[in-house]
Amino acid sequence: MSTIIIDGLSFALPLFIMAIGAIYSERSGVTNLAIEGLQGFGAFIGALFVVLVSGNQGTNSQAVFYLSFFFAMVGGMVYALLHALLCVKFKANQVISGVVINILASALTAFLTKQVNRGVFNQPSDKFQLGVSNRYTVPVLSDIPVLGAVFKNIYPFEVIIIIVAVIAWFVLYKTRYGLHLRACGDNPHAVDAAGRNVGQIRTAAVMVSGALSGIGGMCFAYSISAQFSGSIYVGYGYLAIAAMIFGNWKILPTLGACLLFGFARSAGYQIVQILEKPSSYSDLVMILPYLLTLLLLIFFSKYNRSPRALGEIYDKGKR
């Protein structure tokens, strides 16, 4: 039981932070299919920082660990600027832009990883080796039966994510900026009439989504494989988008969707182990979260409503 909670959380939370990023962008009216590319590029910059300071063997220094998240954020943010530029300034179709950003991200990071490995470390390798992340157990709280597992063996990034998520929630729902952002997604003309710059708000929102995706990508790089390679692009970004739509573009329901993905996944693995089936059966139970989502969507999609101006290029002259 506790393994299910521990593994489930370590998968669900990175997904959640990426989904919050997607919410920021989409609530401001910019369709963001680029999450997949943003998380990969963010993780690449974070990993690049790690190998540049500590060599390509990985390190266990905690300062490097935390700083790598900072760099992943910056990397995701700068790369997201490209998406914002295309969608806001260049009036590109936002779906096209998202897909292009993804393709370019996986191409660029694969290319640059090889170049850096050859140029700096003089070895042909297509991955960056990171250190193994420490894991903590909170002393007293973890002794609570069942739920105590939440405080057992936690990755430090889970704490980072929770702090960032709370801030993101507060900003989106309780501040003036958040109000403007949400208004941009439903009625950008009203925002313009109120004297705010729609393009600026949207650009900022897309950059936030890049930064948060970068955190998510870095988490996956650390928790799943302790390295950065092309295997980061296996669709976590798309899964986060699915969670966001499932959560009806709201932060708390999206958390529920992410937890569902995470727990169904870890429970599936656990069931295979308990039943002592060969590992190929884990593929069968891995279907569970996705099948469950489809079934739940059948009941909940009636209430699903996307932001009204989502995907529309803002045109001042349009009424």
Binding site: G235, I241, A242, I245, S280, Y281, D283, Y290, L294, L297
Partner: peptide, 23 residues
């Protein structure tokens, strides 16, 4: 029939097919 966003359902179907065939 159920107003399920096609982006989500196709992503879910992608995963389901991927794991089912792999099994």
């Amino acid at each position: 029939r159920f107003n399920i966003n096609e982006v989500v359902s196709t992503i879910m179907v992608n995963y389901i097919v991927q794991y089912l065939t792999s099994f």
